[in-house]
């Protein structure tokens, strides 16, 4: 049992279903209070990984600790420490919102269940609908109720599997805001999502998986690792000479002219840009804007998948 350090630690965590290897030797450490994204295509083993960490499935090999307890050996203790929002909300339609939460509160042995129900239904804007059967709820309301269910027992670790999937933009925004608030409370959140923009905005670090771990870092560092850093100079008129001016610097690795823009790959834009701007002005350039070309996490993801496919195809 671990007392300090990461709240989740996996070492070569693997899971097979018959001959199919769903999760292949995943090793990660997740710190307390971190929002950790688990990204990957369908069938990449995200849900299986989460199910193992939620003590629902046993690993075929490897080991993992959640909140200091070893999965497969201290599952009951783990279940008390975690909250879980599965891909499908899985609510009892015939029961009211309050009855659903009261039932799960009893399963978790929550004391002062009425207070907890009120707290989370109010936070998620469902308090006035508490006596209505869930069957009458919209998809967004169901998702919010399922999130409330996952929080009733005040878990340290929260697993959210596609929390905004299928929600309208307004509901998705509300859920994202709520996740950010939960993170602010110091909870550790493991977020499985296909929404890469969402992961980019919410996650401190992301793991890209496709059965095995392809990459693990913060979205910002992953972008830099894969694409480097590029500065864009918007000029009144771009000339071919400018390319040579910029390539004269050691810290410039690449220069591309695109219409009236120059894309420059540099190591450290914060320190390198002033010299580049000076050189361009001296060369007669009229600079309109300067900015960093921001790659989306989606670009990083697709690049990683492309590389993984390339490796798999030999």
């Amino acid at each position: 049992m671990m007392n300090n350090g990461p709240i989740i630690q996996t070492t070569n965590l693997s899971r097979s279903f018959g001959d199919i290897l769903a999760v292949d030797r995943i090793s990660v450490s997740i710190n307390p209070g971190e929002v950790f994204g688990l990204l990957g295509p369908n069938g990449a083993g995200k849900t299986t990984t989460v199910r193992m960490l939620a003590a629902l499935l046993e690993p075929t090999s490897g080991e993992a600790y959640v909140a200091g307890f070893q999965i497969g050996k201290e599952d009951q203790k783990i279940r008390r420490q975690i909250g879980y929002l599965p891909e499908a909300p899985g609510l009892y339609d015939a029961l009211t919102a309050e009855q659903n939460l009261a039932f799960f509160g009893a399963m978790y042995g929550v004391e002062e269940i009425s207070r907890q129900i009120k707290r989370y239904l109010e936070m998620l804007g469902l308090w006035n609908r508490r006596y209505e059967p869930v069957a009458t709820f919209s998809k967004g309301m169901r998702q919010k109720l399922a999130i409330a269910r996952a929080l009733l027992h005040e878990p340290e670790v929260l697993f959210l599997d596609e929390p905004t999937s299928g929600l309208d933009p307004q509901a998705a925004r509300l859920v994202r805001k709520f996740i950010a608030e939960l993170s602010g409370e110091g909870r550790t959140i493991i977020l499985c999502t296909h929404n890469l923009d969402e992961a980019d905005r919410l996650c401190d670090r992301v793991a890209v998986v496709n059965g095995h771990l392809l990459a693990l870092d913060s979205p910002k560092i992953l972008r830099r690792k894969i694409f480097g850093r590029k500065v864009v100079f918007h000029l009144l008129e771009a000339k071919i000479d400018f390319e040579q001016v910029l390539l004269a610097f050691d810290f410039v690795s690449e220069v591309h002219l695109v219409e009236n823009k120059i894309l420059v790959s540099v190591e450290d834009p914060e320190n390198n840009n002033p010299a580049l701007i000076r050189a361009l002005i001296e060369a007669g350039a009229e600079i309109q804007f300067v900015g960093e070309l921001r790659r989306r996490l989606e670009d990083v993801y697709l690049e990683l998948m492309k590389s993984a496919e390339g490796i798999n195809n030999g």
Binding site: L56, Q76, A88, G90, L91, Y92, F104, M107, A146, R149
Partner: peptide, 14 residues
């Protein structure tokens, strides 16, 4: 069919 078992199984209920 309503996929309610998974949230139930993740609780400490035996």
């Amino acid at each position: 069919t309503t996929r309610t078992l998974e949230p139930l199984l993740v609780t400490p209920v035996s």
